[in-house]
Amino acid sequence: MLPTEHRLRRREDFAAAVRRGRRAGRPLLVVHLRSGATDPHAPGENAPPSRAGFVVSKAVGNAVVRNTVKRRLRHLIRDRLPLLPPGSLVVVRALPDAGCADSEKLARDLDAALTRLLGGGAR
């Protein structure tokens, strides 16, 4: 489970990560990262926590498949949040093939995308 303080919930936060962040695409998912963004909704914090959100559309599959993909992605991102700069916003968008992929393939694509974004790779 992803702790509450590490979840993206507001539409504005999703939009900030997608519109103003960097993007890395992989066959199963697209990761949007806005490094070091401050949280205007948490006054007084010096180093806000990194937060993640997920977009899994109906193109991925039925409700059972979508929820399975979201659970897998939440589990995977939980272990990777400490690697991100404080205050980062991450949005992981699952592509249709993510519905039939196992956790290992999702982890491989997530790691590759995060490495590209954190390592300064080109778009």
Score class of each variant (00 low, 15 high):
residue 3 P to F: 14
residue 3 P to A: 13
residue 4 T to K: 15
residue 4 T to C: 07
residue 6 H to F: 14
residue 8 L to G: 04
residue 9 R to V: 06
residue 11 R to Y: 04
residue 11 R to K: 12
residue 11 R to V: 06
residue 14 F to H: 07
residue 16 A to P: 01
residue 17 A to S: 10
residue 17 A to E: 08
residue 17 A to L: 08
residue 19 R to S: 06
residue 19 R to A: 07
residue 19 R to I: 01
residue 19 R to G: 03
residue 19 R to W: 04
residue 20 R to C: 09
residue 23 R to Q: 08
residue 25 G to Y: 11
residue 27 P to R: 14
residue 29 L to V: 09
residue 34 R to A: 05
residue 36 G to S: 14
residue 36 G to E: 08
residue 38 T to E: 15
residue 38 T to N: 11
residue 38 T to V: 15
residue 40 P to T: 12
residue 41 H to A: 15
residue 42 A to W: 12
residue 43 P to E: 00
residue 43 P to G: 05
residue 44 G to N: 09
residue 44 G to E: 01
residue 45 E to R: 15
residue 47 A to V: 08
residue 50 S to M: 05
residue 51 R to E: 09
residue 51 R to N: 10
residue 52 A to T: 08
residue 55 V to Y: 10
residue 57 S to I: 03
residue 57 S to N: 06
residue 57 S to D: 06
residue 60 V to D: 05
residue 60 V to C: 12
residue 61 G to D: 05
residue 61 G to W: 13
residue 62 N to S: 07
residue 63 A to R: 09
residue 65 V to G: 09
residue 66 R to N: 08
residue 67 N to P: 00
residue 67 N to H: 15
residue 68 T to D: 09
residue 68 T to F: 06
residue 71 R to I: 06
residue 74 R to V: 03
residue 75 H to V: 01
residue 77 I to Q: 04
residue 77 I to H: 13
residue 77 I to K: 04
residue 77 I to D: 08
residue 79 D to H: 15
residue 80 R to T: 00
residue 81 L to V: 07
residue 86 P to H: 07
residue 87 G to A: 10
residue 89 L to M: 05
residue 92 V to C: 10
residue 92 V to W: 08
residue 93 R to H: 03
residue 94 A to P: 14
residue 94 A to S: 11
residue 95 L to N: 03
residue 96 P to C: 12
residue 96 P to K: 13
residue 97 D to H: 15
residue 97 D to S: 15
residue 98 A to D: 03
residue 99 G to D: 00
residue 100 C to A: 13
residue 101 A to W: 07
residue 102 D to R: 14
residue 103 S to K: 06
residue 104 E to H: 14
residue 107 A to K: 09
residue 107 A to G: 03
residue 109 D to G: 02
residue 110 L to G: 03
residue 110 L to H: 11
residue 111 D to C: 01
residue 112 A to T: 07
residue 113 A to Q: 04
residue 114 L to V: 02
residue 115 T to F: 03
residue 115 T to L: 06
residue 118 L to M: 13
residue 119 G to P: 00
residue 120 G to H: 14
residue 120 G to K: 14
residue 120 G to A: 12
residue 122 A to P: 10
residue 123 R to P: 01
residue 123 R to C: 02
residue 123 R to A: 09
